[in-house]
Write a protein that binds this DNA or RNA. Sequence first.
RNA 1: CGGGGAGUAGCGCAGCCCGGUAGCGCAUCUGCUUUGGGAGCAGAGGGUCGCAGGUUCGAAUCCUGUCUCCCCGACCA
Length: 513
Amino acid sequence: MSAIRHALATRRADDFAAWYQEVVSAADMAEESGVRGCMVIKPWGYGIWERMQRLLDARIKAAGVQNVYFPLFIPLGNFVREAAHVEGFAKEMAVVTHHRLIADGKGGLIPDPAAKLEEPLIVRPTSETIIGDAMSRWVQSWRDLPLLLNQWANVVRWEMRTRMFLRTSEFLWQEGHTAHDSRDDARAETMRALEMYRAFAEEDVALPVIAGEKPENERFPGAVETWSIEAMMQDGKALQAGTSHYLGTNFARAANIRFQDREGVQQFAHTTSWGVSTRMVGGLIMTHGDDDGLRVPPRLAPQQVVILPMLRGDDGDGALVDYCEALRAMVAAQSAFGEPLRVLLDKRPGKAAAKRWDWVRRGAPVLIEVGPRDREAGTVSLLRRDALWGEGGKPAFQTPTREAAAQALPGILAEIQGALFDQAHARRDANIERGITTADALADYFAPGNRYPGWAQVQWARPTGPALDAVVERLKALKLTVRNVPQGAEPADGACLFTGERAVERIIVARSY
RNA sequence: CGGGGAGUAGCGCAGCCCGGUAGCGCAUCUGCUUUGGGAGCAGAGGGUCGCAGGUUCGAAUCCUGUCUCCCCGACCA
């Protein structure tokens, strides 16, 4: 038993779903909007997304990909070309049918029947079709390839069940779209994007992931291959945190993206697409959050260091603020991870101890409280968010000198970034069961009493068609899905767990978001 | 989209069954006290009870519809 008084009302272990929602609101990240499935992303939540954008965009540009922007609206006729793609998205589409409102005579407004669109517009659920249409005009010769594009955009999918950041009807993402003159080149791009996501997730978000290929039944509609990075949440469920697709020539045929090769022969281009979304923010919460709120990895924190003067509303405040301003300047002069350190001096009136818990819940990596006694002694009181609690259920303050604190911060932030990754990595590895070889053992491992069981890595014979459907049904009975076939796993050396045939590869099986 | 639950002050809730003009805790504001760790006391402000109809002399409360959220399922980044 601990005497710790946590900053949240709900513990992860008691009700993970309720805890998640409490973090989203207590960390002041987002709130409901009144529109089904849509959310208002508040400054702290959006600031984290902006950091993700900045870091991922740098990686995208470093790969020679150029940013573009395509329209929100896609003509219906443009969308209907790739059959599997359309079938995959048709059920969840927002459609624009009118362009004007008129009074309904009862004080309200209705779409003007006289302003019905000749051809409805759909709100993009993803942009393969409209970008494919442009590519068909932009690509003529092998010299035009590869064509490497990316856009940062919002997309809309009419989801049946929504959750903040994890699945919203409208979400923000980047979608890369590339066209190539060969299968090999397009597949290489697919794998490059996947590796980019792995590095982004692990190095920037401190999110350990397993990269691998999705099974046939989990492929993106219209894709030839779909690859993903999968992260383990603290309740043991898997979260698909990024995807990369090799689309073959399916979309090129649908959009007529053709080029003349070196021999003068018309060929269809091979295309790819890849994306990471605001869902990553949800993954960050469920990976790094604790019973005191969010913990933001320093590379992503909008503010890495927050200085809290212990103001008393008396004459002593001026000198204290001066002391803190000087500290702020010292800290701001430091660099961490190759960028100037992001530091906030929170001078809002109020008790430092009360404001402290606001910043703990938001998950700022380092808090520095400064009182009159610190000022006189030339010290500060420093608290690491990744190691909040000390002896006796009290916050674990350190009291270095002001100068020492400022100089130590780059190192401390690097330590926190590493500590968050290491904790998540250790937890994930401890919760992957690799010894399951029978269906009964699998059912036992995921038995209802075992609340947060984690993942199982098992061997299978990679069934296809009806045989795969049968496997999917058996897994569904246990609420499980095949997440992916991990890259770099050991070769199969046993029997398929489902069919008893000789296994050909290892797969990750898990419950998922 | 099916099954279940819920919308009352910024947050968490009571009141509803049995209609009579809205309350508690935290937060906020003011004053006094306190002052190195999530302060105490006193006072104050803040709500057309999700929205729209209906029943009624009178609706947070009863009836109908509708919107939104949460949980479970089906579907999906």
